[in-house]
Amino acid sequence: DSINLRLTQTDNLVFKVAKQPLETEISVFVNPDKTFQSFMGIGGAITDASAEVFAKLPKEKQQEFLNAYYDKEKGIGYSLLRTTIHSSDFSSGSYTYIKEGDKDLKSFSIDQDKKYRIPMIKAATKTAGGKIPLYVSPWSPPAFMKDNKHMLKGGKLLPEYFQSWANYYTKFISAYEKEGMPIWGITVQNEPMAVQKWESCIFTAEEERDFLKNFLGPTMAKNGYADKKIVVWDHNRDLMFQRANVIYSDPEASKYAWGMGFHWYETWAGGEPMFDNVGKVYEAYPDKHLMFTEGCVESFDQKNYQLWANGERYGISMINDFNNGTVAWTDWNILLDQQGGPNHVGNFCFAPIHGDTDKGELIYTPSYY
C-alpha cells in the first residue's frame, strides 16, 4: 500500500555529475552560480493556548515535545519563534498589559505571561541551543483605544491613541528583554483587514503606512530599537501586492519596514492559494524581505488528526512560498489540546502536535512531518 510508504525510506540516491542526459532519464539540473534569497528559518508560534497545554503535560512529555520541535538531532530543529502581544483568540480570555484607560501605560506589566508563556518560550529557546529569533504580533489594542470600545470584532485605533499604542510595542520589547528574551522584530498588526469575532483591529494600507511612518517607526528608533525588524501586512496573500505598493512607495514609511508578512487563509472564499502574489512582491521589491507569518488547518475534528491532506497543505505552501522569494516560514500554534484549543471564542483548529491533557499524551499529525 503506497499510503503506508509516504514517510518510509525505500532507497538511497546519490547525485552525480552527468554529461549529456537522455530524454528517457530523470534528471535534476543545478546551477550553483545562480542564487536567490537567503534562508532565515522555519518555526511556529507559542501562544497562550500552546503554553497552557504544555504546562498540563507530564514532565517527560514536555521534554519530548521540546526535543521534537527544537532539537536539531532529535527533532525538526525549529529556528524561528512567534508570540503575541497580550491576548489573541488562542488565549483563555481577553487581556492586556495595562489597566483600562491607562493612556500613559504606567500600569504596564507582563505578569500575565510569566505563568505559562514565558517559561515555555525560555524552555524552547534552551532546547534550540540558547538562541532563537523571536518576533511578536498584536491582535488588538486595548478596548479604550479603539472606536468600537472593544478588543473583539474589528474596530480602528483612535488617532488620539496612536502614540500610546506605538509606545506599547516598545514597552513590550523592554519587558520581554528584561526577562532574558531578545526580540528580533515585530509585526504592525495581525490581519489588519479582518473583522473577527476575536481580537482584531482594522488598518487600511494608507493607515498602516501612516502609523508606521509617523508613530511606530520613529518611536522604535527613539527608544533604541531601530535594529528591530518591522514587518508590515501580516495578512493573506490576496491583497499583499496592493499593501506593498502603498507602503513601499512612500520612502518615509518604507525605510522602517524590513519586509512583509503573510498568511495562507485567502482560500476562505473557495479559491486557490495565491502564490503568484508572493512572487510579484518579491519581483517588485527585491530589497524587502518576505516572511510567512501564520498558517494552520482550521475546523478542528479529532477524526482528522491523521488526515494526510493537512500535512500536504504545509508542504505545498512551503515549497511555493520559498520558490517565490520567502525567507522564513512560521506555523501558527505549535501545540493545542484534544479539543483544538483552548480558544476563548471557539475558533478551534489543528496544530502539528496536540497534547491530550486527560491522558498526558502527545499526538503527532502529518503536519508535523
Score class of each variant (00 low, 15 high):
Q306M: 14
W268R: 11
H263N: 11
Q338E: 15
M274Y: 03
V246K: 13
I319M: 13
E294K: 04
N343H: 12
A309P: 02
H289R: 15
Q339D: 15
D227C: 04
Q339M: 13
F292H: 13
T293Q: 02
V327F: 02
L290H: 01
V232M: 13
G295M: 10
M260T: 11
D227T: 12
Y314M: 15
K213I: 02
A205F: 09
V232T: 13
L307C: 08
V278S: 01
A205L: 01
P286C: 03
Y314L: 10
F241G: 04
E294P: 06
T326G: 07
D250P: 00
K229L: 07
G311L: 06
S299W: 12
M240S: 08
Q338F: 10
F322M: 06
E206L: 01
V231M: 12
T267V: 15
A221V: 14
Y256S: 02
Y305C: 04
N245F: 08
E298F: 11
E283F: 03
D238S: 14
W332E: 10
M318V: 03
L212K: 01
G224C: 03
D331E: 09
W258H: 06
D210T: 03
G341C: 12
P251F: 09
E283A: 15
S299V: 07
F262W: 05
I247C: 10
T219S: 05
E272F: 09
E283C: 05
K303F: 03
G311S: 04
E266Q: 13
N323I: 08
N214I: 01
